[in-house]
Each structure stands twice: as structure tokens, then as C-alpha cells.
Design a protein around this nucleic acid. Structure first.
Lengths: 214, 214
DNA sequence: CTATAGAGTAAGTATTCACATACAGTATTG
DNA sequence: CAATACTGTATGTGAATACTTACTCTATAG
């Protein structure tokens, strides 16, 4: 028999490089020539690892979440000095949110959203972020007694929106580092204390749902 | 003298059509052939109205804000039954946010953000949205007495983030209409009562700024 | 050693697309 | 009317680029 396949290893090795190019150039402007050059291989090699450019991009999308999750899990493994996981994540993100720019990979997918594969990959990625954040917010709840109130799920979505606008404002130079930090800290704290905790969300939620129809 | 130029009229007439194509296809995939066909003219005509495809896109970006602003101003001109402008906008948006899909034009610009012109246009657009929302949130303040507290500006950014994630969740089918409505109502209400009003933001803001460094 | 198939190199290609050119029609002013 | 510049049509083109093909080299199994 001939030598065993090293395709899986090679994929793992090159994926961060590929993701880096998509981060820098987006989906359309990342040419296969650029991708292969950054990887230090010929284009052909990339086509043996992935069937086409779209597959490379789909792999990069998954990479975005997995990279974030790894970072967060590593953070939570460390000693937290008593603060809740959600608070520690918030603290961390207020200083490091978006520092690798991987969110650009997701931004690049939004204009391609009518492609079923890209849509599915983005959907999965946002859903995973939501699931992770929601879990963190729920563990911060007082006892864990009360049934899963609707607001926590919404607060988790709002937190993703907060991160998104923080990234956009970074890209556009609309907020500097300190302002972005304040944005994440203050609004993030607001979301945590309203959506995560059972206590204050009752009165506050009642007032906010003045217009609720359902 | 020959006939007077109708270029301005033509631009105004075709801009919504052009914006519609960019809404549907984004920046890269909107070909000049598609644009001209949608406008019912030859490509050449578009090149007499705008110097290149990018200029057409830049015009579409400005169109996004101006269209929204017109809609909102028309809404606020109507009788509001005593509710504050901010509340009425929130009510309206909870039902109609993103219904024209124009936000896709902005999404399409994010991967092109290293182009100085596109970046400037996006920056201007987001800044205009922020200015408008902030003004609405500030008019809702109790007397108008207290100095412009920092949280109101942040709350306005968070509101834009809320709208952004609402649009993303719409695109990805992550939230249905009712869920998106709840998201905008509840989190929007939270932002209004925290960032806009002087009263509750004091205690709440103090608590949220536990991590504030500056 | 040698046969096999994976790993790597170097071209080519078909297509798409932004933009250009060349030309015909028409409305307005003196 | 007649001259002018605007309005419109048809076709061309050169560059970019995703993907292919043909080929060589190399490591492993028997």
C-alpha cells in the first residue's frame, strides 16, 4: 500500500491561514491565488483539501466559532476569583472583543446569504454563539429555580447584537477602544442584570413589555 | 442652447431601482448588466449618471439612511396619542424593522471596508442613524435637565446593534416575526428606560459600571 | 526493489464582468 | 431651420479568476 493520507492534517494546518485570508479580504476578494500563496502551496493543493473555494470559506466560518469557544473555555478554566462565568466573560470581552477580526469572516458571508450552504453555516455559527452565551447567562441566575424566562434568550441575542455593533464601530472608527470597552461593559452589564437574573427583570420586563401583543 | 440636462432627475429616478438590486444581490454580485437591466436602460446610461459601479453603490448607501429617516419623520408627523417619539419609533420598528431589506446594502459594504470611500459612506450612515436615535432617546428624558449622560450615547449604539442582530436573525431564519418583535420591544424598552431616562439609569448605571476603568 | 498512490509543480482555459467605443435619435435655443 | 448637446443603442475588450489538466517526485507496502 502507498503512503497514508495526510489530508486531514494538512487541512487542520492550513485552515487558520485560510481563515486569516478570509478575515483580511472577505469571501469574494479572497482569490484562490491569494489563498494558496498565503498557505505557501499551489492552488491545486487547496483543491485537493476542499472541493472548491466555497468549501474553504465554509470551513473558515466554523473556525470562527471554534476559535472563540476555545478562547472562552480556556479563560473559564482559569481561576476566576469568585466572579460568575458571565461576568468574567464580559470583563474579558470588554478588553479583547474582536481583536482577531474573525468576525469579518461572518460579515463576508452576509451578502452571500442566499446560498443555502453559506446560510446554513452562518445560521449554525450564530446559533452556537447564542447557545453558549445563553448558558453563561443562565448559570448566573440566582438559584436556577425559576423556569427559563423568555428575556434571557432575548438578552443573549442582544448580547450578540452588542458584540456586532462593537465590531462594526471598530471597523468604521466610530468608537475608540475605551468607548467600545464602555459600551460592552455597561450595556453588557445591563443585559446580564436584566436578562440573566430573575430579580430585576420582573419589574423591568413588565414595563418594557407595555407594547407586547402576544 | 441644447436641451437642459436631466441627469439629476434620472439619478433620482433610478437610485431606488439601483438600491433594490444592491439589496437583492449585494455589492459584488450586483453586475452592471443586472443593474442596467433592472433600470430598463443600457449599461452606458448608468455610466453617464455615475462614474463607476462603486459610485452607484455609494449612492445606494446614502439612500438607505435617507429612506429610513423619511419613513420615521413621516411617522412622527402623524398623531402619536401622547406617547413619546422614542416609544412610537420603538413600537413602529418592532413591527416593521428591516421590512425593505435595505440593511443588506450596508451588510454588503462591510467586506469592502478597506476601500476608503465605502468606509466613509458606511461610517457616515451609521453615524447618522446614531445621531437620530440619540436625539430621540434624549427627548424622552424627563425634563431635559441633566447633562448628556454617557449611557444615552451607548444605549443608542446598542439600539443599532439590536436592529442589526434582528436583521441578521431574520436573514438566517433564527427568529420568527413574533420573536423579533419581542426582541425589539423588550430590549429596546430596556435601552430606552436605562439610557434615555435620567431616573433609573442612575442606580442601574452605577451597578453596571462596576468594571469601568476610565 | 518496485509498484502504487499520495504530495507537489506549472502551466492553461473558459467565463465573467466592469467599463469603453462608435454611432443614431431627439429636444431645445437662437 | 439649424446647430448643439443630451438621450439612447449595440457591440467590443482586456483583465481577473475559479477551476483544470498534465506532469514529476516521493514515501510506503509487499
Amino acid at each position: 500500500m502507498p503512503r497514508p493520507s495526510q489530508l486531514d492534517d494538512k487541512r487542520r494546518e492550513l485552515l487558520p491561514v485560510v481563515a486569516g485570508v478570509f478575515t483580511r479580504l472577505g469571501y469574494r476578494r479572497a482569490t484562490t491565488a491569494e489563498l494558496s500563496e498565503a498557505c505557501g502551496v499551489q492552488e491545486n493543493i487547496l483543491y485537493r483539501l476542499w472541493p472548491d473555494k466555497k468549501a474553504m470559506y465554509l470551513a473558515a466560518i466554523d473556525f470562527v466559532y471554534e476559535f472563540s469557544e476555545q478562547t472562552w473555555l480556556r479563560l473559564l478554566e482559569r481561576d476566576g476569583g469568585g466572579a460568575s462565568s458571565a461576568r468574567r466573560l464580559l470583563e474579558y470581552e470588554s478588553h479583547h472583543h474582536g481583536e482577531f477580526g474573525h468576525y469579518r469572516i461572518l460579515f463576508a458571508g452576509l451578502p452571500e446569504i442566499d446560498d443555502a450552504d453559506i446560510r446554513a453555516a452562518l445560521r449554525r455559527t450564530f446559533a452556537r454563539f447564542h447557545r453558549f452565551l445563553l448558558a453563561q447567562m443562565l448559570t448566573q441566575r440566582s438559584g436556577g429555580g425559576g423556569a427559563a424566562a423568555c428575556p434571557a434568550e432575548l438578552a443573549a441575542w442582544a448580547a450578540i447584537g452588542l458584540g456586532t455593533i462593537a465590531n462594526i464601530s471598530r471597523e468604521l472608527g466610530l468608537l475608540d477602544d475605551a468607548q467600545r470597552r464602555g459600551l460592552i461593559e455597561q450595556i453588557g452589564g445591563l443585559l446580564l442584570s436584566s436578562g440573566g437574573a430573575g430579580r430585576p427583570s420582573a419589574g423591568r420586563g413588565r414595563r418594557a413589555s407595555k407594547h407586547t401583543l402576544t
